[in-house]
Design a protein around this nucleic acid. Structure first.
Lengths: 134, 134
DNA sequence: ATTTGTCTACGAAATTCTTCGTAACCACAA
DNA sequence: TTGTGGTTACGAAGAATTTCGTAGACAAAT
């Protein structure tokens, strides 16, 4: 069987997934509220808009849902890191000609990293180097 | 003055920009050919499709063009690294909750890096650390 | 001069994504 | 019973993106 065929979430779908990853399983109402809380744009997202998106996402397999009760409970169908991995891969392919390292270099150069983060990254590099030497 | 207000290129527009970055200034015909060469999808992109896209990109300011001759010459209006920076920033914001370092960590973990690349990254980190200590 | 091939411009269809209005349903309270 | 409020389903409008057909212009060859 095909293990993946994960449809790429759109921008809006990603926002919803983010809420589900942060909150865990949630109702449409909860997702919609969080969505509106976190946005800068004063314009509110309508309840049925969120509902519709969740229904579409269910059809795409991006979320699962429990319909036992009248009020359905939605959950993200995939781990956040898996989706991040896909999006990252796509960006590397489309914008960095497949060179993930070029992208890493750029990210390190552009963004401020705390001393702790730099340590973490160095530690990770050490680990990767050790693995390579086997 | 605002240095940017760069419209985000769409997926198709990014493909075209990539060709222009690789080839340098080019005609519609050249861009269209390269576009079709590099794609896996057997379905060809029509000439007028590329033409139209370039015209739209010109209006958005994504490309410049020289119309002295009958056959126009298009050029990317922005440096590749600037566009990469924007796309990267967007991905970090939408998929990594603003944590560029988390994204870097994931990229380092997922992708194979050569020993040389790892050295480069380490060197960059040293540089960043030196800067921080001032 | 006429044909042939290539070019630009432009409208519009096709596709995908986002948003919402409306209907139908159900539970609970008055 | 009769609302009142909250819920799902669904069609369809709206918006953004991608695609292409067609018309008109121009240049070079016949």
């Amino acid at each position: 069987m095909k293990t993946n065929e994960i449809p790429q979430p759109t921008e809006s779908e990603l926002e919803i997934l983010t809420v589900l990853w942060e909150q865990g399983p949630a109702t449409v109402r909860e997702v919609n509220d969080k969505l509106n809380e976190r946005r800068t744009d004063p314009k509110e997202i309508g309840y049925t808009t969120t509902l519709k998106l969740l229904q579409i996402m269910f059809e795409k397999g991006l979320v699962t849902r429990n319909t036992d009760a009248r009020t359905h409970i939605y959950s993200a169908a995939m781990a956040q890191t898996d989706v991040q991995r896909n999006l990252l891969q796509r960006l590397v392919d489309t914008a960095f000609q497949g060179s993930a390292m070029q992208m890493v270099m750029q990210a390190l150069g552009d963004h401020d990293a705390s001393t702790e983060e730099l340590q973490e990254i160095k530690a990770l590099i050490e680990k990767v180097e050790k693995l390579k030497s086997l």
